[in-house]
Design a protein around this nucleic acid. Structure first.
Lengths: 246, 246
DNA sequence: AGGACACTTCGCCGGGCAACGAAGTTTCCG
DNA sequence: CGGAAACTTCGTTGCCCGGCGAAGTGTCCT
């Protein structure tokens, strides 16, 4: 009758609006974005977007920093992305409507960023390559789709476990990847809706992604979250890390 | 502009309604419930509850099995509970309004079930006792509140790790706990909003909870999710497992 | 049978909220 | 110092959806 405990409903209501969901999903990219860009992305007017963003900021899901006459919006904390992923796990896949959409979906399926690391087919291939070369260990062969779904069900706090091996450390260092020493867990996994397999998350996943960007082996696409493999990346990724490509 | 990817917004919309959120939270209990009980719990009429439940079932968040003239509703899959927890992590704590509410909140704070295992103060004490007696190992002392918040942020897929020790296995077996051999992870942890500490989840957490029920050391309260410690439990829990009580 | 019970269906009412456009505010640039 | 760009504020409009009660359907109990 009256709300009790944490007020789940009102948080959910923030995500329940399609425009706000699009905004949040866009921000999952990890990169900050401006109000007008988000408005364009959601296909709504500037004033409407402003109202939405005000609500999101007010609820502490999103933060703003003012940079002159523009403002940069970001996700406030990792939990927000986690909640979005959890909801996505519940959502039934939506039928594709337009061609433009289907190409975009296809691009997302190929490779995209998930908060701050690589996901999609490319992310999964990278993970598999690291396992195959012995750069990563553990997981009990859980890279397979069926099991991936299983342990997705047991999240959060699952005891499935990957670790970076010495060979992996040297290989990545040779590539110029800064092995992080932060408090943030080094190796995590993440299961996504397109591939239903693990890909590399955590501090290491983010570090590798950053490095691939500076090497210009991958590049952000025109639409948010989409990642393109550059010709250089197409050459060097199989060479240096053993990633298989089509 | 148009929905893309999984339709997060519509799933969120299902949770965005306060009555439905109450229903889902009640079902988080783990026990099935009837339509009228859920209606009463949410403080709405039977017809309204019926409409809500129809939507939840239609969206595959909840399942029904007909048992004669009554129907038993359950959460359809663990992901639903996970999504609710993820949203709760985002929700700001709500100010308590009525006295009735505050007593119920206090009861929840003391001890409750979280999906299928013990949470609240009792759940945390149990976890601590298991650690203190060496029945559980690992976690790097992460049972402390500050760190618990930290790794909650890094969920899901965190690499924090607890394990059942041989001494724990014998002690629990002696108590009559069936050590599970299912695929489900044996030991998981779970951080909750009241205590901000770990408590024991996973197959083992569920098994222990079941056993305590059959021993009649704990009992379901009148309101959903609330657990009461029986006099027998108050005597034997400190004795057998080293749980400290006030 | 018949009556109580559990739940669903239907129609109606009312509130909340997203969307827009126009006008105001702040900041940057030439 | 203007004028443009980036957001915000405000007032309006229209729709969606939760709530109820009354009537309908199926099931169990005696």
């Amino acid at each position: 009758m009256v709300p009790v405990d944490p007020d789940i409903a009102s948080v959910a209501a923030l995500i329940a609006d399609n425009s706000r969901a699009l905004i949040l999903k866009t921000l999952c990219d990890g990169r900050p974005s401006t109000g007008s860009a988000l408005a364009a992305e959601a296909g709504i007017g500037a004033s409407t977007a402003s109202a939405h963003l005000a609500k999101l900021v007010d609820a502490r899901l999103v933060t703003v920093v003012r940079a002159g006459r523009t403002r940069r919006y970001r996700l406030a904390r990792p939990e927000v992305a986690a909640a979005l992923e959890a909801l996505a796990a519940l959502a039934a896949p939506l039928p594709v409507r337009s061609l433009r959409q289907s190409t975009r979906v296809a691009a997302l399926r190929r490779s995209r960023t998930c908060y701050d690391h690589l996901a999609g087919d490319l992310g999964v291939r990278l993970m598999r390559a690291l396992l195959d070369r012995g750069h990563l260990t553990g997981g009990d062969g859980l890279h397979h789709p069926d099991r991936a779904v299983l342990d997705r069900e047991s999240a959060p706090g699952t005891d499935i476990h990957y670790e970076l091996t010495p060979s992996g450390a040297t290989a990545l260092t040779a590539l110029g990847v800064q092995i992080p020493t932060t408090r943030r867990p080094l190796v995590r996994y993440c299961v996504d809706w397109t591939e239903r397999r693990h890909h590399l998350a955590g501090a290491l996943g983010a570090a590798i992604t950053t490095r691939l960007h500076t090497l210009d082996w991958i590049r952000h696409g025109s639409t948010p979250r989409v990642i393109h493999l550059t010709p250089a990346g197409r050459v060097h990724l199989p060479d240096c890390l053993g990633v298989t490509l089509d």
